[in-house]
Design a protein around this nucleic acid. Sequence first.
DNA 1: ATAGGGTTAG
Length: 879
Amino acid sequence: MLLTTKTSSTGFWVCPFANNSREKPLKNGTSQALPGNPYSRTSLFPSSVSHISIGLPPKASVLSANRTRNIRSIDNNTEIIKFCELGNLDKAMELLFKYEKLKLDARTYCSLLQLCAEYKSIDNGREVHSIIERNGIETGGVLESKLVFMYVSCGHLIEGRRIFDRSESKNVFLWNLLMNGYAKIGNFKESVNMYYRMLELGIEMNSYTFSCILKCFAALENVVEGEKVHEKILKLGFGSYSAVVNSLISFYFKCGRSGSGQKLFDEMRERDVVSWNSMISGYVANGLAVKGIKFFMEMLRLGVDVDLASMVSALAACASIKDMLLSRAIHAYAVKAGFDLKMPFTNTLLDVYAKCGDMDGAVCVFENMGEQNIVSWTSMIAGYAREGLSYEAIELFHEMRKKGIDPDVFTVTSTLHACACSGSLESGMKVHAYIKEKNMETNLVVSNALMDMFAKCGSMENAEAVFSQMPAKDIVSWNTMIGGYSKNSLANEALSLFAKMQPHKRPDDVTVTCILPACASLAALDRGQEIHGYILRNGLSSDHFVVNALIDMYVKCGALVMAKLLFRKILSKDLVSWTIMIAGYAMHGFGTEAVATFRKMRQAGIEPDEVSFISILYACSHSGLLDAGWRFFNIMRNEFYIEPNLEHYTCMVDLLARAGKLSKAYKFIKGMPIEPDATVWGALLCGCRIYHDVDMAEKVAEHVFELEPENTGHYVLLANIYAEAEKWEEVKRLQEKIGKRALKKNSGCSWIEIRGKAYIFVSGDSAFPQAKSIKFLLRDLRRKMNEQGHSSKQKYALINEDEIEKEVALCGHSEKLAMAFGVLSLPPSKTIRVTKNLRICGDCHEMAKFISKKLGREILLRDSSRFHHFKDGSCSCRG
DNA sequence: ATAGGGTTAG
């Protein structure tokens, strides 16, 4: 998950830790009422008629045929009503058509509409409606209510609303009905509008009204308005209605006010099962699962009748604390109580297994539950995704579609998560196509998940496309984009989006952990400090992710002292905090301190992982701690059973090469159990340059060129090795090769931040601020260096002839220009902090040392691989 | 005649 230590690339600086490998959800309990919830209390088939279905089995048909004979003599109204009571909508409709022209009783139409509502049969409902209209039946009063009820129940709110609006006798029942209808489809704003309208018109509200409006304000997270409703409830004397108080309790829990919920519960005179259940689920939703379980236990102790909801909530609590033992006990209890075969229960049980990481167990529940619904499938997908089994998750997504189950928003977000984790853009695109097909892009959570998937698959263009067309963006949307830019090495884009965000949304803890890596990668210390200020002002510094990101930022901006200070202040340092600090010491050339920190980490009982080993090996190689390096390499393999990866090998080769053990390094590479890449060979090539081993360099270069033929850096390195050995023929040959391949050289660029503004210098570019004074200063310095015997060694400059000319004219590389600019622009007491995208060149290194001595300035230069701290004529990298 | 608690997500 962490650190991408490519010592030879700038990738190293692009945030390791802070990126949002923080998968914690931002808000809990924002579950919205989904339309068509199969578990609503109003069962589709009332228990009295549950054995009769619309498509009648043969036996039942005979039965109803007999009945038809028996009731033939009875009048038309009674006849239809009889069938309605039996739940036989088809037959009732048949008769209705038969007597279409007759004016039937209002109560007959009412019965029919009631049945249509129960079966959610909009087509039949519309037929009844039109027959009523054609016969000119007076629809005032009950019939009108029934019509609205039918439309709302069938999910056709607009038509229900039309009748409601025209109605002259709007009673509180109808108001409640519509308000609830809007709430059910998630249109809480319209419910709230209706509530305010009721207030205006002075309509007498009842307990149903309050239950509904509290649910809406909870969903809209409008605590203030909800509290006003609370006052009204007390004033109107509804404070003792259990349904109302229960609604209040869940309202407070959903708004994160557990204390208020608890207080209401304590003060209740008569608690019913729903009150208890609200407490369990309330605490679970607020991350206090143990407290939730305590309420469940208390119910059992007091002999309160637990129902399905109690069991499900208790089980959900087990899932959130991953308590398999307790969930087995609850499962056993559920078997006794007969809840174990209910869909919500099995689904939750499945989720417990999945959340505990036992996917085999989850599969077992899934296969044995007989019938699976969309929740079962989604839990499986989410489980696989969490376990990193992305392939399985994506497979299930397609499988459920084949089985005819339509994935919903929950399903697609889980699947997208799987695509994101595995970085499979292709699968992600397929899910995107499905989302478009189902018009799900309008859903905020879905859009956020889509952007996250695109960002993690490295396609910020696609993420941007989704982001820009979102009508409403929440904090997660902004954080996802900023984090995406950060992780995709687009630090400037991250910073500019961060700035754009401010007028819309207040940055939170996640935002700052997303933006700090961008500051770190740009070495933008001033910006980083501003954000540190924001963190302090807004009390975000108690968050682990924030503090770690902050330390990482300070390390990478060269403010090691500040990083150490913050690190010392952390009370419970986690693996990431330690690893950042070890890497920090490593980058700054404090190998011994890195080793000591590693030891302290182990003393603190923290187990190192492969990333912390990369850091410590990197520290050893950059400080030349050969023996220590080997020791850690062996500890990693033998004590922690961590198989070294390419990055570990690169560190070891680097370590050997810097120590001059070139042939040993060569043999080491040859003996690697995994295929070495160009970076591994490149580390050895660097060693060849230090020790002027041309023969070895040629051998090594072959491998490097083969693996990365397009990387000019390698050719330049070999050319320099030839030049230093004065093999000019070879140099020329290589230069021709570079020319023939028309390889574009990575142009060097350096920048320096002065009072929050970054000044960028590109080598070969003559347009930069204060050009005259900089050139003058550099020429002067060069002259003084020559006088003191620092001959500007020609070998440093042998890269490319045109460039030499340019650079001579400009008195040097970009880092020289930036340093000179720093000398001119900053007061003498201030450290000059320069950042370079490539490695510092030898000549610039010499000059930096010279400046530090001659002008008494401290220079901190960050190149692509480490920090160079120049002071009193020497550098922390010791050459 | 309508409600309050219960499973899946960024």
